[in-house]
Write a protein that binds this DNA or RNA. Structure first.
Lengths: 137, 137
DNA sequence: TTGACATATGCCCATATGGGAATGTATTGT
DNA sequence: ACAATACATTCCCATATGGGCATATGTCAA
């Protein structure tokens, strides 16, 4: 019967910049290629990764437009296409006002009174059994 | 014999904020919970997702500190912890000067002469067979 | 205490990796 | 044409999902 798409598990790293930069080495590569174009070999030497690995990461970055390539003899010169990072910057930027807000609230509270009661905790994980404020029982 | 860690395939979504926000619905949730704390049910109704799905995403967000929780009766009030998004903002920000640079270069070129030769293409994928500038053969 | 309500988890399963190793392909030099 | 150099791709395989569904937990109301 009609079971089209079933589990998609997780979006492809090649589906968008957000997924692509989720990988630390890819961010490292983008950092490395930001100011200057470089051949694959230099990335390999510089970041200490395996060549096939670097090629694969570059492929992913290329597919989402985070890098550009140019051939130079037998070398492939890659370079970060900063413009493609812009959407991420803009998304994160929409939260800037909120963290400023939170900071001021925290500061306020810190100066006001040394009350150790957390705002619900910096962030706190309910591992299994819910026992948030189990001050009953 | 000693084969410690083998394939790690991909970092866990709970390993860091970058991985956590790679998922579109999680970003949607973060947007939704940015200005005000909300119970799970409202997220479900508002974003049109299944409740278990929302709970799982919230769990991921919670583990990397992107949201905070607070219990209110039988409801769990979640809220975005903008502070945790800051590292992403800062990383993307390091590329800002580069895209400004590129924009000016593009603009310059566009005004200079209407030369259709691409800078190596906006970004261009070498699908299989390498045929970058195969103007030989 | 019992039932309703609000969430969180557990299960099952297909998909998308990402590393390592081996191999294919393109380009240059002689 | 042939070897060397520089990359890209393929295979194999374990891991981390994420959706749908059923079910467990926790809390409150009568």
């Amino acid at each position: 019967m009609g079971m089209y798409c079933w589990g998609m598990a997780r979006a492809a790293t090649t589906s968008d910049a957000f997924n692509a930069v989720a990988e630390p080495r890819r961010r490292a590569i983008l950092n490395y290629l930001a100011m200057q174009e470089r051949p694959v070999g230099e990335i390999v030497d510089s970041l200490g990764l395996e060549q096939p690995s670097v090629s694969k990461h570059l492929r992913v970055l290329l597919e989402v437009g985070l890098v550009n390539v140019r051939r130079d003899g037998r070398r492939m010169l890659y370079r970060t296409n900063a413009e493609a990072i812009r959407p991420l910057h803009e998304w994160t930027e929409t939260f800037e006002r909120f963290w400023r807000h939170q900071l001021s609230r925290i500061k306020e509270r810190a100066e006001g009174k040394s009350n150790p009661s957390k705002d619900s905790g910096p962030h706190f994980i309910p591992r299994r059994k819910n026992d948030f404020d189990s001050n009953k029982n």
